[in-house]
Amino acid sequence: MTIRLVSGPPRLTGTAPELPPHDRSRFRAAAHHARRLYPGCVGELLHRELLAYAEFGHRFDREALMPRLAGEILACPIREADGHQPGA
Score class of each variant (00 low, 15 high):
Arg62His: 10
Val6Phe: 07
Gly71Lys: 03
Glu18Met: 14
Arg59Glu: 14
Val6Ala: 10
Ala70Lys: 03
Arg48Cys: 09
Gly71Met: 05
His58Asp: 06
Pro17Val: 11
Gly8Met: 11
Ala75Trp: 00
Glu72Arg: 11
Pro20Glu: 12
Cys76Leu: 09
His47Ile: 03
Thr15Glu: 08
Leu51Phe: 00
Tyr53Ala: 04
His33Asp: 01
Glu63Arg: 00
Arg24Tyr: 05
Leu12Ala: 02
His33Phe: 02
Ala29Ile: 08
Arg48Val: 05
Thr13Lys: 04
Phe60Ile: 03
Ile3Ala: 11
Pro10His: 04
Ile3Met: 09
Ala88Tyr: 04
His58Asn: 04
Pro20Leu: 13
Gly87Trp: 06
Ile73Asp: 05
His33Trp: 01
Arg59Lys: 13
Ala16Ile: 09
Gln85Lys: 01
Leu50Lys: 06
Arg28Leu: 10
Ala29Trp: 04
Gly71Val: 09
Glu80Asn: 08
Arg11Met: 03
Pro20Ala: 15
Thr2Tyr: 09
Asp23Pro: 00
Cys41Val: 09
Thr2Glu: 10
Glu80Met: 10
Ala34Phe: 00
Leu5Asp: 03
Arg35Cys: 01
Glu80Ile: 01
Leu51Ala: 02
Val6Leu: 13
Leu69Ile: 14
Phe56Asn: 10
Arg59Trp: 04
Phe27Leu: 09
Leu37Thr: 08
Tyr53Thr: 07
Glu63Gln: 14
Arg36His: 04
Ala52Gln: 05
His84Asn: 10
Cys76Gln: 13
Pro77Glu: 01
Leu45Thr: 13
Gln85Ala: 12
Ala52Phe: 11
Pro20Asp: 13
Pro9Cys: 11
Phe27Cys: 02
Ala29His: 09
Gly8Pro: 11
Tyr53Gly: 07
His47Glu: 12
His47Phe: 14
Thr13Tyr: 02
Glu72Ile: 10
Ala29Gln: 15
Leu74Lys: 03
Ala31Asn: 03
Arg79Pro: 00
Glu18Asp: 14
Met1Ile: 04
Leu19Ala: 00
Ile78Trp: 08
Leu69Gly: 00
Leu69Ala: 10
Arg36Cys: 05
Leu19Met: 14
Arg24Glu: 12
Val42Thr: 06
Arg26Ser: 01
Gly87Gln: 08
Leu46His: 11
Gln85Ile: 04
Leu46Lys: 12
Ala70Arg: 03
His33Gln: 14
Gly71Ala: 15
Ala81Asp: 11
Ser25Tyr: 02
Gly40Leu: 13
Pro10Thr: 12
Ala52Ile: 10
Phe27Val: 07
Gly8Ser: 15
Asp23Ile: 03
Arg79Ala: 15
Ile3Lys: 08
Leu65Glu: 15
Pro39Thr: 06
Leu69Thr: 13
Gly57Arg: 01
Glu63Cys: 09
Arg11Gln: 08
Ala29Met: 11
Gly14Lys: 06
Ala31His: 00
Pro67Asp: 08
Tyr38Phe: 15
Pro77Asn: 06
Gly83Trp: 02
Ile3Val: 10
Glu80Arg: 04
Ala16Phe: 13
Ile73Val: 15
Ser7Met: 14
Leu69Trp: 07
